[in-house]
């Protein structure tokens, strides 16, 4: 989940330690483990998973301070907290980790502007904010967020061209339509931005001849920004799109299927 880089996976590859790798023959990593679980949830095939094994793998990556490492090599980042908690939540296995400590670690990454960074003291960045707010949302801990302060920082991300950026003084980019909007929705402040200008910005990033959406107008389209553009439009209830859940990044009907029916 690099913010402008591949987030999905090309192949699903399951290794014997219980996690998923980016492709066949690689070691498992939390990023790919979450992607694999999300894809199987989309396909309604969570039944193929050995949930016991995967949840043990994910839970084993929690550190003493509540943070999560991405894999056995120990890189720590609030992105991995999100991956772990989202994944365990989909699998109904949050009881396997210390949720209180996980939440406290996220809170230790909160900054003076109300946003969150990758590690304690790291600069606020819309992508990291999505991960932290998403983690807090899934664990029912949003009361720790200063909604008005964070909401203002997030709506300050809207540039005069209507698009959203990820940090002050950076250019707008379609992918932040997802990271910023989803965070605003989770803290119930999405009405603070100008939705029609943002919609217009995303539509301007379409390749009207060959399809697809790019990061900014007139750039080459790619599958990642196409996903984020469509997801952003869905969050703004653009006609004809299915609603998407801001915390799980899955269609709402899939999330409902996971939590309101037994699999």
């Amino acid at each position: 989940m690099g913010y402008c880089k591949p987030y999905g996976i090309k192949f699903i590859s399951w290794t014997i330690v219980g996690g998923f790798a980016g492709t066949i023959g690689l070691d498992p990593h939390l990023l790919y483990t979450l992607s694999a679980v999300q894809i199987l949830a989309l396909l309604n095939r969570l039944d193929v998973l050995d949930i016991e094994m995967i949840s043990e793998y994910v839970a084993g990556l929690q550190n003493e301070d509540g943070s999560f490492s991405g894999d056995m090599w120990g890189e720590i980042d609030t992105r991995f907290s999100y991956c772990a908690i989202c994944c365990l939540s989909i699998l109904h296995c949050l009881d396997k980790i210390n949720v209180g400590k996980a939440v406290n670690y996220i809170l230790s990454c909160k900054n003076l502007d109300g946003g969150f960074g990758a590690t304690p003291g790291g600069e606020s960045h819309a992508g990291q904010i999505f991960c932290c707010v998403g983690t807090l949302s899934i664990t029912g801990s949003l009361h720790h967020v200063d909604r008005d302060l964070l909401g203002w920082w997030l709506c300050e991300r809207q540039c005069p061209d209507g698009g959203l950026n990820g940090r002050p003084e950076k250019l707008a980019d379609v992918c932040y339509s997802w990271w910023v909007l989803s965070s605003l929705i989770m803290i119930d402040r999405v009405h603070w931005i100008d939705k029609s200008k943002l919609t217009e910005y995303i539509l301007n990033c379409q390749d009207s001849e060959n399809g697809g959406i790019s990061d900014r107008p007139d750039n080459a389209v790619d599958v990642f920004h196409t996903y984020f553009g469509v997801a952003g439009l869905s969050l703004m209830e653009y006609p004809g799109l299915k609603p998407i859940d801001p915390a799980y990044a899955l269609p709402v009907d899939v999330v409902n299927r996971i939590f309101f029916s037994k699999f």
Partner: peptide, 10 residues
């Protein structure tokens, strides 16, 4: 700040 007028009216 018209782009954030909803925020300020809130």
């Amino acid at each position: 700040d018209p782009i954030r007028s909803n925020y300020w009216s809130w």
